Simulated scan of single mutants.
Amino acid sequence: MFNLIIQSAIIFNLNFLQKDPVGGNRQSASYQVYFEDREKQKVSDINRIIADKESDDPKERAFRCKFNLKRKKYSRLNTYYLVIADESGLQQPVKEEFHINISIPTDDIDF
């Protein structure tokens, strides 16, 4: 489980790594990446990762995604999930548990 501590914004970045280069028996794949709550309601925007890098250098197979959380109250006691869903539907989505701890209430921010 991961703790995501956000000091003052509901916008943050996460880095992802394509484990292996494309080539041989490894094919490219596309994923949708987002956060959801226990009720499977999306609480962030959706990012798309196209894992098609052929480089042997892991640094060149890294992806940085910017997430925007929806304006709502988040409890640090609730469990949220980072979902990584294969767009082809051939693999089950991967879900990683997160706790979201925002130090200021997001529903009080007015831009």
Rank of each mutant, 00 (worst) to 15 (best):
T79Y: 08
K42V: 06
T79K: 14
R76H: 09
K66V: 11
H99N: 11
K66P: 00
N13G: 05
K95H: 10
Q41F: 14
N101P: 00
Q92R: 13
D110K: 11
D45P: 05
D110C: 05
S103Y: 12
A85F: 02
T79H: 06
A85T: 08
L17Q: 12
K42M: 11
F35W: 00
N25E: 07
I100L: 15
F35R: 01
K53C: 00
Y34T: 02
Q32G: 02
I11A: 14
I46F: 11
F16N: 03
Q91A: 09
E97Y: 06
I46C: 05
A29S: 14
S55M: 06
D37Y: 08
A85S: 15
A85W: 02
S75W: 06
G89R: 08
I49D: 01
R26V: 15
N68Y: 00
F111P: 10
H99E: 03
E39I: 03
Q92T: 14
S88M: 03
E39R: 09
G24R: 08
L69K: 02
Q27I: 04
S103R: 14
I5Y: 10
D57Y: 11
F111Q: 05
S30H: 00
R61M: 06
R38C: 04
I84M: 12
I50E: 13
Y80F: 12
L82R: 00
I5F: 12
R26Y: 11
R76E: 12
A29Y: 01
I84L: 12
Q27D: 08
I84H: 04
D86W: 07
H99Q: 10
F98W: 12
L14T: 06
E87A: 07
F98M: 09
A29W: 01
K70E: 08
M1S: 13
F12H: 03
Y80I: 05
F67K: 02
D110R: 11
V33N: 00
A85V: 07
K73T: 13
A9Q: 12
D86A: 07
K70R: 11
Y81D: 00
